[in-house]
Write a protein that binds this DNA or RNA. Structure first.
Length: 423
RNA sequence: GGAGAGAUGGCAGAGUGGUCGAUUGCGGUAGUCUUGAAAACUACUGAUCUUCACGGGUCCGGGGGUUCGAAUCCCUCUCUCUCCGCCA
């Protein structure tokens, strides 16, 4: 959520920045400032009345103590008069504040200066491409065939017990999942991230805190009986650990990692995008979250990207880094790097990580602040990234490492799997 | 699922209609003392809106009501805890 004061101060900058998302919101911004002006006016006027009313009430109290009942009764008339005016102000205040908030909820974060112009994924900027695209042997097949051949994943069994997009991992397939999770968590720990195991279900307030609500209402699984949501990413519970928190400046940066399953309804997806492991309703992911000082947050973002790069290098996967264009960025992000791996049998790039700086956008909703050196509270910056999401990593590992003898496991994973070949 | 209790400042915990934004303790910050530290003592120490400032307003889980006046009374919602039941 943007800050109203920033909208006042940096109106032109914000309009320009939002134009990168192909949004033209100057009218909305002006409306917000207009409403906020009214809010201030109401408060100033009602403060005067409240002050008068409070003062008289105190006098009445004094007079009662002194036993001067008649004088006290005589004073009661004025506050009674003020009451209606005060409650009218209060009512208008509520509607004005609601309107401001509702408008703010519709505005996405302002893209960082470095965000490229563009409308769709083709306009994303390739920052780096690294690793050798493997040349597969003649009979190479996509991962869903490999999963079947080697009995690693049973998609149909998942359909039976739940539905499409809920695979059952079996045998070495299951072991490989566990190995990847442990590997990612260990690497995160080495990089200074403290592991947490959060709830996999969150309440409505948490959904609002990180911005999934109200924007992506239909993307989360909702359980109306208890009004709880299955998490679409560990970002939600882990970032919300710090909701309504005032940190001291020396606690920053705060680094956390978490493995969780992630649940997404993926309404509207179809075709080759959902084949095999490409897009699931339930998948596993290790997420890294950082709360940091505004002055440092972009350096931190680069560190997070470097960390994920390291993971991909250790897994020996060809990857590329994209800087998302304004049209392809998430609602809450100011700058996002996507990491994609090349899946050699499908002959396509698959997104395996998305690393973003949200600046104060989430912190403003979360009321996540720190007490600066000047003793004033200011909003912290929040960042997060996948490190990493499993299914597409698995897809690329299977496809890229297939040989006539079987599927080779990268050396970095062998200590975790206990085997170096799936045959 | 049944019954009961409760929600107050970073934490603990008073306060049951009138200088209560809130006693006190702990914690935190600064100072005195000390070679230094600890202890002790002293002072300060919530958030938020508004204002150039002085100041003023709001906040005792959320919302509403009673009253001249509500942390205190009433209604309602949410959450937490305890006991019983069930159970990994």
């Amino acid at each position: 959520m943007l800050e109203v004061n920033k909208i006042r101060e940096d109106r032109e900058k914000i309009i320009t920045a939002l134009a990168k998302r192909n949004l033209h919101l100057s009218d909305t911004l002006d409306r917000i400032v207009e409403l906020d002006d009214r809010r201030k006016q109401i408060q100033a006027e009602s403060d005067v009345l409240l002050n008068e009313s409070n003062t008289i009430a105190k006098q009445i109290g004094e007079l009662f103590k002194q036993g001067k009942r008649d004088e006290a009764d005589a004073l009661k008339a004025r506050p009674a008069e003020l009451k209606d005016a005060i409650s009218a102000f209060k009512e208008e205040m509520n509607t004005v504040e609601d309107s401001i908030r509702d408008l703010l909820y519709t505005i996405p974060n302002t893209p960082h200066d470095s965000v490229p112009l563009g409308k769709n994924p083709e306009d994303n900027e390739v920052v780096l491409e690294e690793g050798k695209i493997p040349v597969l042997y003649d009979k190479a097949v996509p991962h869903w065939d490999l999963a079947d051949t080697y009995k690693l994943i049973d998609f149909e069994l998942g359909v039976k017990i739940t539905g499409a997009g809920f695979p059952v991992y079996t045998g070495k397939g299951a072991k490989l999942q566990r190995a990847l999770i442990a590997f990612f968590l260990d690497e995160a720990e080495k990089a200074g991230y403290e592991e947490v195991i959060p709830p996999h279900v969150v309440n409505e307030a948490s959904g609002y805190g990180t911005g999934q609500l109200p924007d992506k209402e239909g993307q989360m699984y909702h359980m109306p009986i208890d009004d709880l949501y299955l998490i679409p990413t560990a970002e939600v519970p882990v970032t919300n650990l710090f909701r309504d928190v005032i940190l001291s400046v020396d606690q920053l940066p705060l680094r956390r990692s978490a493995y969780t399953p992630c649940f997404r309804r993926e309404a509207g997806s179809y075709g080759k995008d959902v084949r095999g492991l490409n897009r699931l309703h339930q998948f596993d992911k290790v997420e890294i979250v950082v709360i940091d000082h505004p002055e440092r947050s972009y350096a931190t973002l680069q560190n997070m990207v470097a960390h994920v790069q390291g993971l991909l290098q250790k897994l020996e996967l060809p990857y590329r880094i994209l800087r998302l264009c304004g049209g392809d960025m998430g609602f809450t992000s100011a700058l996002t790097y996507d990491m994609e791996v090349y899946s050699a049998a499908q002959k396509r790039w698959l997104e395996v990580s998305s690393i973003s700086n949200f600046e104060t956008f989430q912190a403003n909703r979360l009321k996540l602040r720190f007490k600066g050196d000047d003793k004033k509270n200011q909003l912290a910056h929040t960042l997060n990234g996948s490190a990493l999401a499993l299914p597409r990593i698995l897809a690329a590992l299977l496809e890229n490492n297939q040989t006539p003898e079987g599927i080779r496991i990268p050396a970095a994973l062998v200590p975790y799997t206990g085997f170096n070949l799936i045959s």
